[in-house]
Design a protein around this nucleic acid. Structure first.
Lengths: 147, 147
DNA sequence: TATTGTTATACTCTATAACTATA
DNA sequence: TATAGTTATAGAGTATAACAATA
């Protein structure tokens, strides 16, 4: 018997979709933590490095990491001790310290990102239309912060 | 000038899509941690509770939480001290301790899940087709473990 | 022998509060 | 006064290694 034009499986309920988002988010971070660990980094250290495509003040890092500013001191301390980042006082406002990647830090970020991408083999197999649709759906469910 | 039939924005590259997945996963856990915190729970405590729809051995929890078994002892200790879970020795294999929700634990999980769902307003606004497409894309990019 | 769970240890992450330096 | 960053502190999460109980 030919299948009908409608999808062969029923559409998931919002609750079922939420559960699947939970599994996907867990899988993403399980991957990321494993890739960071291959470079001797914790999850938070890896996240911090990957946020430093451009130099950022400590305060901004705290906002992006969704943690208190006092935590960032220790995280950046450890990254700095390993030579992956350094602090620079901002000339315009000497209260601010910008954190930026060293060359070794940049190389580490490149490797982690490459490892992540090769782990997400499903992404490369998506068509242009599928990637476009995926992006649109993610944006609708997780909108960018308005501010 | 009329727009072409193709989508108005270009399809994202796999790398761009990976970055968006990173933002989405971060947003998901920022939400989840905030909802858990409203009940005085940490992220890991909230995750543990939400994994207990059915009783599970400590070892299974360690696998699902992607952490060492020794950590689960402390996490479950704290949840048990607050009356949200309890341990039960499995009769068939007395080495195994099954962890299960108390009634208060079940109520807490219900509230956290309801809070999450009301926070993900975008999910309710998706059409049946969109939810089905989203599910299919998530499954392709984050396949269920084969084992 | 192998597996489950716990304990002990050391390190990292976490929020809170108090502090310094700068604006 | 207000903001950026640090320090001190206590509690929670983390992996490793060693252990007891059970299979």
């Amino acid at each position: 018997m030919p299948q009908p034009a409608t999808p062969p499986t029923a559409a998931p309920t919002p609750v079922q979709l939420m559960d699947q988002l939970a599994r996907a988010a867990a899988a993403y971070y399980r991957n990321f933590a494993a890739m960071a660990a291959e470079h001797g980094l914790t999850l938070m250290q890896g996240k911090t490095l990957s946020l430093l495509r451009e130099p950022r003040p400590m305060r901004t890092l705290a906002d992006l990491l969704a943690c208190d500013a006092s935590n960032v001191t220790g995280i950046v301390d450890r990254l700095e001790a390993r030579g992956l980042v350094r602090r620079e006082v901002a000339p315009a406002d000497r209260r601010i310290k910008n954190v930026l990647l060293t060359e070794e830090g940049e190389e580490t970020v490149r490797r982690i990102r490459a490892d992540m991408l090769s782990g997400l083999t499903g992404l490369d197999r998506l068509s242009d239309e599928d990637r476009h649709a995926f992006q649109a759906l993610l944006t609708r469910v997780f909108p960018e912060p308005t501010a």
